[in-house]
Design a binder for these strands. Structure first.
Length: 788
DNA sequence: GCCCATCCTATTTTT
DNA sequence: TAGGATGGGC
């Protein structure tokens, strides 16, 4: 089986072209609903089955674990489990983690390094910031982490950070300290997984006479490993990912990327559309294939989507089309306010159900998660079961994190973040003061906290800890020691988990508590142990020895276990079965499709979401657009993504006013509504029968009391074209204000010529400069004249 | 060591 | 408006 020829008949021409492409760079523009996943999986199957490429030499990268899982599943069906098993299919992070386990030495890690998630990173940074006595009103830990994250996504090391203010200096030194602590803890944050591998594969080949060990050769052997690399959702790649991919295919250029610049909606988290838009330039001779036939949606929905994305100012030309039926009119509904809107949503769901459309075939989308609350209330009132995608994560629950911390600690007793997290869970009389002293001593003596604790408990180090507390410390150290040796002795992870629960006293603690909450916690822990068992079975089936590290890696890189939230008995099973309505943000909906889609909150300011920040208007991005213009472009693409989720029916809602962040806001209908092709749209008012296309007055604010009005025939708010700048590599600084840099020479009327020392950004930027005879002066920028 | 009150903040979110 | 985070008080 699995002969590509056998499956080729039902592919359209461009699909076939992409599937049968073998060597050299390939760029596939995959429009919404154009059969992308099929093309990717068939192509991989074709490489293996027709061209006899060994599966372990093919790497397919996705952006979520879910996508990776689905791809692997489909490949198993095409190739059979044996061959599919050896393929490298995974997220960038999972793939890099796997490579790093193998080449840990070259990256300066132990084979059992841990991966720090957001919360771990946060507690580490909290600690550092506290020790350094940073003014957290000025510079909160989360801001520091955000900066570090942004820098790491561009592979900018601490010593490469541009420093123009004391604040920059501070961030850099915190960045350095943070990295140092990670290394000391034998830990990586998410970005490090990619960065470490990037540094290995970008390292030039060692000269032939040099000692050949993993340290020098890791990069070479990783690059030699993959003969074909494929990246899905390429428009979402950031700088590091792009460089990584480039380095991996340096020798052969066998890189296939699949994506859609129209669906690029993650600029705010580092994704760079230029990676896909500029691919053909970066890889000369790349074959470009456009998948433009949409198999998913009705013709009206496709036209609606095109009308919205067609106004995008920067896109690669492509024409989505469909052979599907015209379908029904896209419906636009006006609501008075968000409660009315929610009420209409709920009523629609019930009405459709009465007409035989299952709830599971519907999805309600919104721009911001905050909008879900009102919707939930309305659904509850009508007893409509729903689930929210992307809410609380199982692995973020306190008790789950606690048990995981015990497990991580048993594999890696140096991980201080984990130690601190559980040293007093359950409460065992080791308070913050004691922990502080331990950490202080650890730093002073250059020890991991566990060792410092041991020494203090034994009285070898004097840290001002009372005898009673020392005794408790000793007991705690004994618990950790026992876990560490059990792990070293090779006990299976699930046994270790149970041991941790018993020895730590956590199990007893929950049993004694007896509250509902404690029961839920115990249940969750049971579930965690269950998933460890599942992992063990899976590992054994794959011929691997189950280990804590192996399990932890899975959990660290796994995200939402999307559990139904809301009315549990209704949502899960029960009289309604699993016929549950789905609610989620537009972002979360990417890659999914539903028979009917309701998009809520289509109002100016909300969708497109606008955050008023004037400096954004003066900051030019690499595209030559200002930052706010770029944001608007992304909102447009987001609307395109939302619309193209629908197969049969599309309902668009907007409200005349709504309370947002505690403030009443009046929202004009979204410009995206006004972009729709009128012939494909019908307008409905609340409580009225369908009235067909018609127009309304253009003063929604004034007509509020009499119900909302859609300003249909009016021209949409103009997107003012600004004089575009030369496209550059980076954001251009504001013209006014913080254009000065450290070291620049400036002149002041009274103080004469001075040199810039510090730049303080803000509405009215200030400069600290040194003037001879006057010393350091802080002066408003506008009183200074820059000198060449 | 835990609980309550007050303060603060507030797109989108993966790994 | 409301939830989470933080800090103070018992």
């Amino acid at each position: 089986m699995s002969n590509a020829d056998a499956v080729a008949d039902d592919l359209n021409e461009p699909q076939l072209e992409a599937v049968t492409h073998v060597d050299g760079p390939l760029l596939v523009f995959a429009g919404a609903g154009s059969g992308k996943t099929r093309v990717i999986t068939y192509r991989i199957a074709n490489l293996v089955a027709t061209h006899s490429v060994p599966p372990y030499r093919i790497l397919a990268v996705t952006f979520t674990n879910k996508a990776a899982g689905e791809m692997r599943e489909r490949l198993e069906r095409l190739l059979g489990p044996e061959l599919a098993r050896d393929l490298w299919v995974g997220t960038f992070h999972a793939t890099c983690a796997r490579l790093l386990r193998k080449h840990h030495q070259a990256a300066g890690l132990s084979p059992r390094f841990v991966i720090y998630d957001d919360a771990d990173q946060r507690s580490l940074m909290d600690r550092i910031v506290k020790e350094r006595d940073v003014d957290t009103d000025e510079l909160p830990a989360r801001t520091v982490l955000a900066r570090i994250h942004a820098l790491k996504q561009e592979a900018i090391a601490p010593d490469e950070v541009p420093r123009n203010s004391r604040r920059d200096d501070l961030v850099v030194s915190l960045y350095e300290e943070y990295d140092k602590r990670l290394r000391a803890a034998d830990a990586c944050d998410f970005d490090d997984l990619l960065l470490h591998v990037l540094r290995l594969v970008e390292r030039p080949d060692p000269p032939p006479h040099e000692r050949a060990d993993d340290r020098t050769l890791a990069g070479v052997s990783i690059r030699a490993l993959f003969r074909y690399v494929l990246v899905d959702e390429f428009q979402d790649t950031n700088a590091v990912q792009y460089r990584l991919v480039r380095a991996l295919v340096r020798a052969h250029g066998n890189l296939a990327v699949v994506g859609d610049d129209d669906q690029s909606i993650y600029r705010w988290r580092g994704a760079d559309v230029r990676n896909i838009r500029g691919f053909a330039k970066d890889f000369p001779g790349a074959r470009v294939v456009k998948l433009e036939q949409n198999y998913r949606s009705t013709a009206r929905i496709v036209r609606a989507a095109l009308a919205v994305i067609g106004k995008s100012r920067e896109r690669i030309a492509k024409e989505l089309w469909t052979a599907n039926d015209e379908g029904e009119l896209v419906e636009v509904r006006s609501a008075v306010d968000e409660r009315d809107e929610a009420q209409q949503v709920a009523a629609y769901v019930d009405a459709r159900q009465a007409e035989g459309v299952a709830r599971r075939d519907l999805a309600v989308l919104y721009r911001t998660n905050a909008q879900s609350r009102v919707l939930e209330e309305a659904l509850r009132a009508r007893r409509i079961p729903y689930r929210i995608v992307g809410g609380l994560r199982f692995f973020d629950r306190a008790e789950v994190k606690h048990l995981l911390a015990y497990l991580r600690l048993s594999a890696n007793p140096r991980s201080d973040v984990d130690l601190v997290r559980i040293v007093n869970v359950p409460a065992r009389g080791i308070g913050a003061t004691t922990v502080d002293r331990v950490q202080q001593a650890a730093r002073n003596h250059g020890l991991a906290s566990l060792e410092a604790m041991r020494e203090i408990a034994r009285g070898k180090i004097e840290a001002g800890v009372a005898a009673a507390a020392r005794k408790r410390l000793l007991a705690f150290v004994a618990i950790v020691d026992e876990l560490v040796s059990a792990e070293a002795a090779g006990h299976p992870p699930s046994e270790l988990a149970e041991l941790a629960l018993e020895r730590s006293g956590y199990a007893d603690h929950l049993r004694e508590d007896g509250s509902d909450e404690a029961q839920t916690r115990a249940q969750n822990l049971g579930e965690l142990v269950g998933s460890i068992r599942e992992y063990e079975q899976a590992a054994e089936a794959a011929g691997e020895r189950p280990s804590i590290t192996g399990f932890l890696e899975r959990t660290a890189l796994i995200s939402t276990v999307d559990e139904p939230r809301g009315q549990d008995p209704l949502a899960r099973g029960g009289a309604w079965g699993d016929d549950v309505l789905t609610l989620m943000s537009v972002h979360a909906a990417k890659g999914l499709e539903f028979r009917e889609v309701l998009i809520t909150g289509l109002e100016e300011e909300l969708f497109p979401f606008v955050r008023a920040r004037d400096e954004d208007d003066a900051l030019f991005g690499p595209s030559g657009l200002t930052r706010s213009e770029e944001s608007l472009e992304e909102e447009r693409r987001l609307a395109y993504v939302a619309i193209t989720r629908a197969r049969q029916r599309l309902l668009l809602l907007h409200a005349g006013h709504r309370t947002l962040f505690g403030q009443l806001r009046f929202g004009r209908p979204s410009r995206f509504l006004l972009d729709l092709p009128r012939a494909d749209v019908k307008l409905s008012l609340p409580g009225t029968a369908d009235v067909g296309p018609r127009s309304f007055s253009s003063r929604p604010e004034r007509d509020l009391d009499r119900g909302p009005r859609l300003a249909w025939p009016d021209a949409p708010p103009r997107e003012q074209p600004k004089a575009a700048r030369e496209p550059g590599e980076r954001y251009v600084e504001r013209d006014e204000g913080a254009d000065l840099r450290r070291g620049d020479r400036v002149r002041h009327k009274r103080f004469g010529v001075g040199r810039v020392i510090d730049v303080e950004e803000g509405a009215e930027p200030k400069i600290v400069a040194e003037f001879s005879g006057f010393g350091e002066m802080t002066i408003l920028r506008r009183f200074l004249e820059p000198l060449p």
